[in-house]
Nucleic acid binder design. Structure first.
Lengths: 338, 338
DNA sequence: TTGTACGCGTTATCAC
DNA sequence: GTGATAACGCGTACAA
């Protein structure tokens, strides 16, 4: 169980530890034969450099922290796969934590990561907002942080986001093209820029097509299935049932569908629905949900690369924002039945 | 950006580093006032012990590796939450990797973790089987490893599993009680003990109720939605459509449902279905899927605790297997319509 | 009760 | 081209 050290290898070969070290980091002068011999016996003895000692000396942990709001839906896990793809290749370790949409937990996660001296942080913030200050402080201290998906615009760091405005616009326009007029929008927490962008996309599409709408048609809500259910139940009780809904994410869309079905309302005949940020679920539920797909895996790779850029430049790299494109998958939930 | 070290604190207070160290690990004699003073100024200066130096000295990384076959479905993420709950509390870091059901990747993950000198590993093996040897080698070398859910019986280590036999038995019996006779079982990869156990539960329930069945009624398959689809398509082409199906997991059950619907077969009228290891999906698809729920979060906590036991005893703790219980959620997909 | 000094396993800098 | 040695930051045996 005891780890073989560089000394063990040196002793075995009657050479100095420096030679062994040189053999492993072949940037110093070393005779080819000695190097090969060292590498061979090292392998035979099962030696590999101790990462803790290396970390201590190099003053960096080779660890990257990732903070996501949840990983129960497939969206964030898919992004994480992309992140890992890039970072594991660069021999970084990836520490994943979930804030469970809770601001306190998120802050704890960040503090833990700072304590364990990760070399950088990738974060998608929770739906609450309290700890922007903490994050801002870290950034100001020169700590490499990048954001994706759920970003906060006030912090001047690199980000990877989705073209929410454009695709919200298209999603709304799709409903309009299907002939729906009385369209409602389920909007998310307003401090998240993606909520604002999706709402603006909705608004502008309605305006472009000269469809009047009141503020009552934009309903601010949470991000969960339950939120979608609650809204529909309220609407039904009020007796104001829309012709169509553009929900800012799939869970709220699915919640809406669940509740509509419960009240025997048909989709899309009575109410048409479009979601956003589709997960595996969209094609499995019934009727299949029209939704906008984001390139999750690519998003992960991009955000990891942005972080690497910051780390390698000691945070002197230019701050950049990458805006990704997606597509809309049109399914039964939004297609008008003749 | 530079980290405050123990020396900085000592210098500021004109005391020795050992005093500062003692103040933080209060097991040595130190005057209460000095300790309080040190702790206060340390906090003020933003000092916290460097984990890399600590690791090097203590010869343990305070990191635990977790290897799961995938985290796109909600099952493993939920288990991971339980694992993190226990381990983060004990100040461990949790390194999560996914093998994507691929044996090579799984081995790479294991080797990476060994290289980064994690203090222990929690694993749920992929659906392939090649690297049992590597795992066995690690265990023999005295490396703390525990398994959950997808376990391999040949390796003598602590495990957390589900009572697959019992609940497969109940699930089958539920179908029988509903009056179905010609029941098929979709079984998983046979080197996974959970596949065998679920199959045995099915078999024994059929036998108990004196229902004859042929080997053709047990179909070995993969674990994915596509596998369920493929089987049903084959059965339909062969013209042998069962009255009811007990699928070894939800994805295959859902795949079966998708394909049955495609061929206009009704669930449960034409074919009744029961799944296993339910995820969020079960209650969202239509008709809602009867499935057996596993206590995922608890499973994570148990397996983390088993690992801690091994680590703290230097692998001299007794090997134990915890068998968890669940329940069956009966929904529309399996309830006979009069 | 407090301070000094060593070692954990590396790499980098200096001699030779 | 190779060997000795000083750091990295911490905990602790030992001395004071």
């Amino acid at each position: 169980m005891k780890h073989v050290t560089i000394k063990d290898v040196a002793k075995r070969l009657n050479c100095s530890v420096s030679s062994v070290s040189r053999a492993f980091n072949d940037k110093y002068d070393i005779r080819k034969e000695t190097r090969d011999l060292i590498l061979a016996t090292a392998k035979e003895m099962g030696y590999s450099p101790n990462p803790m000692a290396k970390s201590l000396l190099k003053q960096c942990s080779n660890q990257i922290g990732v903070v996501v709001p949840e990983f129960i839906n497939s969206f964030f896990p898919e992004v994480i796969l992309g992140i890992q793809k890039v970072l594991l290749e660069k021999k970084y370790q990836v520490l994943i934590t979930s804030s469970n949409e809770n601001s306190e937990t998120e802050m704890e996660n960040l503090m833990n990561m700072e304590d364990s001296m990760v070399d950088g942080i990738i974060i998608s913030v929770s739906s609450e907002t309290k700890n922007i200050d903490y994050l801002t402080k870290m950034v100001k201290e020169g700590f490499p942080v990048v954001m994706f998906n759920r970003v906060n615009e006030e912090i001047p760091i690199s980000k990877v986001i989705f073209n929410d405005y454009k695709w919200a616009f298209f999603a709304t326009e799709h409903l309009i093209e299907q002939g729906y007029r009385n369209i409602y929008h389920f909007s998310g927490p307003q401090h998240l820029s993606l909520s604002k962008n999706r709402m603006n996309g909705f608004r502008d599409a309605m305006n472009k097509h000269k469809l009047p709408f009141t503020s009552e048609q934009i309903i601010e809500t949470g991000l969960l299935i339950e939120d979608g259910e609650r809204i529909i139940e309220n609407l039904i009780k009020k007796g104001t049932i829309p012709e169509a809904i553009f929900a800012m994410n799939d869970p709220t869309a699915i919640g809406a569908m669940k509740m509509l079905k419960k009240y025997k309302l048909k989709i899309p005949e009575d109410v048409a629905i479009v979601g956003f940020s589709e997960t595996k679920l969209a094609s499995l539920i019934e009727p299949a949900l029209t939704s906008v797909v984001q390139p999750t895996y690519e998003m992960g790779m991009h955000v990891a690369n942005l972080l690497l850029k910051q780390i390698e430049s000691d945070c002197h790299a230019e701050v950049e924002t990458i805006v990704l494109n997606g597509k809309i998958n049109i399914r039964e939930s939004s297609v008008r039945v003749k």
